[in-house]
Design a protein around this nucleic acid. Structure first.
Lengths: 231, 231
DNA sequence: CGCAGTCATGGATCAATGATACGGCTTGTT
DNA sequence: AACAAGCCGTATCATTGATCCATGACTGCG
């Protein structure tokens, strides 16, 4: 029945299900559902917890590297994959629901803490496990919900950038400095200044062409910059 | 009427409102509401957009420092304050709602980009404005929604830790001191860098013309002191 | 001033849905 | 076989999102 509810939820366009629909999808009556779950909220909690179990199973198959930091990176990406693959279920698990008794968030935080504990054991963690887990999970959820809510506003590369930002603040590994690309940095700064105030020294056509060139420089240097983490 | 809807929403414990309740709180009939907003979703969109306007007004009163990075930090904290002060409205604005036409998220992203553009203009930004805005907003929303959903799981200091993590990934460590001629400074810096290392992104002819333009910008800003440095 | 036409208005109502009461059936025990 | 107990499902209620149609107000014309 939980499977049916999740299926209906995934296919419903307004992110809501009717208890009647769930019941007749399984072939049972409504009182049965209410004796089993007590409430519609109870049913949704059960669906959310079932979602966590699937999440945990999928994650258990994945995490077997001997480098805990690599596993951490894979965990973030896996989380994002889960979110985009099951947006409705993901919202059920991570969007605020009043009076929800689902333990999915707490359990996933526990999984993340376990993963971080391994990192901390090899000295890769800069702050304590609990705080790091909160930071990573909330950031990860924020990116996922933002992408679910309005994919047009949030870039495809956002997940990796946010991941590196969160991990950079949490892990002890040296953070790549921005001074590796001085040309790009200077071009970016000038581009912003021109956008903000303009310049009386150039004709409008010249300024427009200059801005295009600066964008090219920034883009080129962004590609050439050594991007360390992918996977 | 929007105010009444928001008030009811804030006081409702299940994070939902009945169109009847809104109508009789204002003293109008239901068809009136449906001719005004077309839909319950339309009403909620209107409430969300009204929430953005309050957010924007509150923010406009705040942002007046001459250090854009300081303003950026204040903006994050202000965002969190808004979230904890108006949790229901905040969820309406930032939690995914199917088929929502609310522009609140887009507008707030625009405000953030404007704030970041000022940072980038003084060389405080390591990546481009749009990407930085996406990262900061999604992380901020994630922390806020997590705290709203389950305050017990997420520490009080999480907001500041996440803030520093996001900003640390986005800002350059040494903040360039504000000068009276930022365009000229940026142009001079880029000119020097191009002279030193060049750029593969431009053709030689383009690069040569770019250097002449940069010289013109530097010369002009050196001669005519820009007294109106506002944009 | 009177009248027809147009349109907003709201009481009444429909349809969907969450939740439940009550009669009937199965099951186990004597 | 008779009886008690518990589960099941039909039928139903209450709430709520959304809409229909008779009514009345306003406008423009004669």
């Amino acid at each position: 029945m939980i499977e049916a509810a999740e299926k209906l939820l995934a296919h419903s366009d307004d992110q809501d299900i009717a208890t009647r629909a769930v019941c007749e999808a399984v072939g049972v009556t409504q009182p049965r559902l209410y004796r089993l779950f007590g409430d519609k909220r109870g049913l949704l909690d059960a669906v959310a917890d079932a979602g966590f179990e699937r999440y945990a199973r999928h994650k258990a198959q994945l995490e077997q590297t001997d480098d805990p930091v690599v596993d951490l990176y894979a965990g973030w990406d896996d989380h994002m994959d889960f979110a985009v693959a099951n947006p409705a279920l993901y919202q059920l698990m991570f969007a605020p629901r009043p009076h929800s008794h689902s333990q999915a968030r707490r359990h996933i935080l526990g999984l993340l803490e376990a993963s971080l504990l391994r990192c901390s054991a090899v000295g890769a963690l800069r702050i304590d496990v609990s705080h790091a887990a909160q930071l990573i999970l909330s950031s990860n959820v924020g990116v996922a919900l933002s992408r679910i809510a309005e994919p047009a506003l949030f870039d495809d590369g956002l997940s990796h950038r946010a991941r590196d930002a969160a991990f950079g603040a949490v892990l002890t590994q040296p953070v790549a400095s921005a001074t590796e690309d001085p040309v790009g940095d200077a071009a970016r700064q000038l581009h912003s200044q021109l956008t903000l105030t303009g310049s009386e020294a150039l004709e409008p056509a010249e300024e427009s062409l200059l801005e295009r060139w600066l964008e090219r420089i920034v883009e080129r240097s962004g590609r050439a910059r050594p991007e360390k983490a992918q996977g």
